[in-house]
Amino acid sequence: EEEEKDRLSDLPDAVLQHIMNFMNTRDVVRTCVLSKRWNNLWKHVTTLSFSSLGKVLFYNKFVPKFLANRDASTSLIDLNIEVYGFKAPNLTRIAKYAAQHNAQHLEITTQYNFRGMPTSFFPLMFSCHSLTSLVFGTCVSNPPIKLPKSLFFPTLKTLHLFNVRFDGGIDHHCVEPFSACSVLSTLTLEGYSFCNDADTFCITNSSLSILKIWDNIIFSDDQLSSTCDLPFLEEVNIKILSSPMKYSVVAGWLQYKRVRGERQREHVN
């Protein structure tokens, strides 16, 4: 008899919703048929997790319906999306929803067959003034995703980009994407390709303290601008497995700072 107890129902709504935050959103919605109590619990989930691998048709219909039915007064905290063949209007819809519902952490990974972000995507993200962390990129088998040449994330503290590129535009200026991220403290560039051959790249940021540059970086040595300005840089972590030459180039590029007496740690793995 003891074994038949329904202990799950002893948990308060807030804990049940917390459990849902660790589930993918499709399964979260399915809990609405468990019992009357579970009918509306899913609407208050604060973590959305969409992975459309093998379910592209499903997700393209599910996402707008889910967003329309979720409780609009509940803020969003985490949004994790793995994009496989999402329709552009859906990505725009998600970005808009995230901005309107005070999303704080965003993780967007795009996969094969990805045709680029809709043009409205980044402006919407820039308008999301609750955003504190962003992970964004595409898998290595894809061409790098082109990003706007300047990122206006006024509240972002952590930024992790992988397999992306910046474009200096027709006049091939120095690309300086991070100077407008005024509270950024940790920047990770992974599997990264620096802009066009004719552009130079520099990292200028008045708040950055940790910089991580990881493998698969594609650039030519003369693209690294010597005007990097990172007054608060404390820690540099460079991991370039494929090419020791590139390591020394990047290390040399950041040498600029060490001359000015900043505390730095560099690692070669």
Partner: peptide, 23 residues
């Protein structure tokens, strides 16, 4: 708990947790 619930049908979830079906 999320890992237990995820990927299961509602019937399976009710069985595991002895949730009464009042719907």
């Amino acid at each position: 708990l999320a890992r237990i619930i995820e990927g299961k049908t509602p019937e399976e979830i009710r069985d595991i947790f002895h949730l009464p079906d009042d719907l």
